[in-house]
């Protein structure tokens, strides 16, 4: 296992700073442990099978085989699937833009075009390019659209990505735990500028966010 220090990085999905990203990272470690163990056991069995002598009788062979196939081929994957889905589906549901108790989440419209991000705050009329400012610990709904080709909005440390498709508007819910600057990147291939189509998400504390709004308006 690599030291956890190796997992940090400005775009690392393993260094979460938001609820959604944390769930995803948690899912990764959980599945790695579970599926990694299965993998090692299967390898070990194969290794043993190569070393072993042949079965004594055909009946013996048939019996063992039935256990292998029913146990390993049916029961094992079914159990794993149910387990993973049982944890995964509810976690996934919590990442969705569900209604928030006590008011509407902050809405921000992001429109992508080759190769920049137009950010627009409908409440305040603030317009930015390649930069999103959000308050900490507050659910934010990003309304994602595209002016030209398919792009994808992704801030790995805060949560999963969502595509921006011409003619459609998708809503991505993000929430940051601590103030700071997080990097975002276009994740869907969009032409020659794809590699450099990046942006920043600046997370302010509540007071700082109000100050920033004021500052921009003046």
């Amino acid at each position: 296992m690599l030291p956890l220090a190796g997992c940090s990085g400005p775009l690392s999905a393993l260094d979460p700073a938001g609820e959604s990203a944390r769930s995803a990272a948690w899912l990764w470690w959980g599945m790695l442990g579970l599926l990694g163990t299965i993998m090692l056991v299967v390898f070990a069995l194969w290794f043993l099978a190569l070393r072993r002598g042949p079965a004594k009788t055909e009946a013996d062979a048939g019996r063992t085989a039935r256990w292998w196939i029913i146990g390993g081929g049916l029961v094992l994957p079914m159990t794993v699937i149910v387990l993973i889905l049982a944890f995964g589906i509810p976690l996934g549901q919590r990442m969705l833009p569900l209604p928030v108790a006590g008011g509407e989440p902050l809405q921000i419209n992001v429109t992508a075009r080759q190769w920049q991000w137009q950010v627009n705050y409908p409440d305040t009329g603030i317009r930015l390019t390649d930069e999103v400012h959000i308050p900490v610990n507050t659910p934010v709904d990003l309304h994602l659209a595209s002016d030209d080709v398919v792009h994808s909005f992704w801030v790995p440390r805060l949560g999963g990505k969502l595509d921006m498709i011409p003619g459609h508007t998708n809503v991505l819910r993000l929430q940051a735990d601590e103030p700071g600057t997080y990097r975002g990147q276009c994740a869907e291939f969009c032409g020659t500028g794809h590699a450099h189509m990046q942006f920043r998400v600046v997370v302010h504390d509540q007071a700082g966010f109000r100050r920033w709004q004021q500052g921009v308006r003046e």
Binding site: L27, M31, I89
Partner: peptide, 9 residues
């Protein structure tokens, strides 16, 4: 798994 896929896709 959908939520994991959103991160790694």
């Amino acid at each position: 798994l959908v939520p994991f896929n959103w991160q790694l896709h």
